[in-house]
Design a protein around this nucleic acid. Structure first.
Length: 565
DNA sequence: TCGGTCACGTA
DNA sequence: CGTACGTGACCGAG
């Protein structure tokens, strides 16, 4: 029997982990069970686009040692197409086959048996008679029988084909297809970020924590003692009484005693009462307490491995607008701790962040020629200010107010100027706002569906109006934030693909900022390459000559903190 | 033990 | 100048 031909470059090849060194693959007219070596041979010689059911599979393949160049992740594309978060195989399958979510079967012993107490159809067949995936087969582990393993990857292949059909039906099919591939690639970046971690200078981290909350306590008793000592720094300025600094209610009562009646005790509100030593001490205490509870020694012990890498779980399109998220504090590391993020000896960090990304994205997605022209400037707000005949600061506030929806203060005159000078962009924002207010889902430039939520009925008119307005602001923000996330991810996957030969490794993605670890000798080369990748990514993302210029600040560093702010 | 609220770090 | 997210402490309901 003649061996089946290899897949062609870019061809969809479904893959699933089936055992310790066993993988199931399927492409049109072929199914095989292969080991890692064969998987790698297919990758290197055939350059397929691997189809997976979920990012967890990409993580498993990455951990197994496969370097995935191109992929198509079904859960990721599902979320792009249909919005929301749920994207287990059952939902993915139901969505592409046109079955209602409401008819999804639930896992459980009872569902194994039909009404007559007999198995409902052929249990080896992963699709039930009603068309849904048999739920007991997909939530855990890998498929146990050869027949099921085969069906599992064959169904993935079918699902990918149907997703492509769905994407082709969107208003801009080519762009939607490109987004699906880039978003899948971003999940692969996330898998590698999860595995690689962020390099930390542990000694420096310990020093920074110590300077904030003191030395590492030897035991629980000492920890409690240090805690009380920190509290005492505030309480000695407080009025007589029992106050619990960790309880907002108690802090509010304390402030009340001092004569400050406040609706809440948020820092920005307390700023104005800094003159009182108790308030000043409380604000300093809050900062230290943040380190003590969230970014202290326990955090270090929990999340920084013996190889001095800070690790968390990364997801490529969490949240409504499809931004990346990360746990373990990777996305909200206090600025003071950035000095502890450092390249090991002989290596460098290349830091690159997009400048004024959101107004530039607005120019691109709306197709506003005037704003696109302004994007030619390094500082986009300068030509906008000139156009509006206002100060730069005022122009900037007006643009941001237009994008995010101002509720307080007033940028009135400048906002009217924006309407006159950049009508296309302003109409785009207005349309998203109106859709959100009406409860209609919006799609980002790249094709991501952002769903709205229902407003509970039976409340007063004012509450309904406020809820609708909040939804409008959300939608207006989502089309900008979401599109910016899409451009950023195209950039990240481009950098990943192009920088491989330089021995580079992306170690952090932060919404508009990339940190790439690279051998010192090739650092300057990589900095050049990252700039080129932005040009490439921008033209891939918005190919129809939008005329929008994107800019990045790129520097070669030893420590993250060395970046100019 | 759980979810809601407050608070705060990042973009 | 608003939106998003992750984290942790407290608090009241169960």
């Amino acid at each position: 029997m003649a061996p089946a031909p290899d897949p062609a470059p870019g061809q969809l090849v479904a893959v699933a982990v089936s055992g310790a060194n066993e993988f199931s693959v399927a492409w049109t007219g072929c199914w095989r069970s292969v080991d890692l070596a064969e998987l790698q041979r297919l990758e290197v010689h055939c350059a397929p686009r691997w189809v997976t059911w979920s990012p967890a599979d990409l993580l498993a393949l990455t951990r197994a040692g496969l370097r995935v160049a191109r992929c198509w992740d079904l859960a990721t594309v599902h979320r792009l197409l249909f919005g929301g978060w749920s994207s287990d195989p059952g939902r993915v399958w139901a969505a592409v086959t046109g079955l209602s979510e409401n008819s999804l079967p639930v896992t459980g012993q009872l569902d194994l048996l039909g009404p007559a107490g007999e198995p409902d159809g052929d249990l080896e067949e992963l699709v039930q008679p009603d068309g849904h995936l048999r739920p007991e087969w997909f939530p855990t582990g890998w498929q146990r029988t050869p027949g099921r393993r085969r069906r599992w990857v064959e169904l993935a292949l079918t699902a990918a084909d149907r997703q492509r059909d769905r994407l082709a039906a969107l208003p801009d099919p080519r762009r939607a297809l490109a987004t699906a591939q880039a978003e899948s690639g971003a999940e692969q970046v996330c898998a590698e970020l999860t595995v690689a971690g962020l390099p930390i200078d542990r000694a420096q981290a310990e020093r920074l924590i110590e300077s904030s909350i003191g030395p590492r306590p030897a035991d629980a008793a000492e920890a409690s003692q240090l805690r009380q000592r920190r509290d005492q720094q505030v309480l000695r300025h407080a009025p007589a009484g029992e106050w619990d600094l960790r309880s907002p209610a108690s802090v509010r009562a304390m402030l009340d005693r001092l004569g400050y009646a406040v609706p809440d005790t948020r820092s920005w509100r307390l700023e104005q009462y800094r003159d009182h030593p108790a308030v000043a001490a409380l604000l300093a205490w809050r900062k230290a307490e943040r380190i003590a509870t969230t970014y202290g020694y326990e955090w270090l012990d929990r999340h920084v491995g013996p190889d001095d890498r800070l690790r968390g779980n990364w997801t490529g399109s969490d949240g409504a607008a499809g931004r990346m998220t990360a746990s373990a504090g990777l996305h909200n590391l206090p600025a003071e701790l950035r000095a502890a993020v450092a390249a090991p000896p002989g290596q460098r960090l290349v830091r690159a962040d997009l400048g004024q990304i959101e107004p530039r994205v607005l120019a691109a997605v709306s197709g506003d020629a005037g704003l696109a022209a302004a994007s030619a400037a390094d500082d986009l707000y300068a030509p906008v200010a000139e156009q509006l005949r206002v100060a730069r600061a005022e122009a900037k506030i007006a643009v941001l107010a237009a994008m995010y929806g101002q509720t307080s203060g007033t940028a009135g005159a400048a906002l009217r100027g924006l309407d006159r000078s950049y009508p296309v962009a302003m109409r785009y924002l207005r349309a998203a706002y109106d859709a959100g207010r009406a409860g209609t889902a919006v799609r980002t430039y790249g094709g991501r569906l952002v769903r709205m939520w229902p407003i509970p009925t039976g409340r007063d008119a004012e509450a309904n109006r406020a809820a609708a307005a909040a939804r409008g602001r959300f939608a207006r923000n989502a089309v900008i934030q979401g599109a910016a996330a899409e451009l950023f991810k195209v950039w990240a996957v481009t950098v990943r693909a192009r920088s491989r030969a330089l021995g580079a490794q992306i170690v952090l993605c932060l919404h508009d900022e990339l940190l790439v670890l690279v051998p010192a000798e090739t650092a300057d080369q990589l900095a050049e390459l990252v700039a080129g990748c932005l040009t490439e990514a921008a033209s891939r993302w918005a190919p129809r000559g939008s005329g929008v210029r994107f800019v990045a600040d790129i520097s070669v560093l030893q420590r993250w903190s060395q970046a100019k702010a």
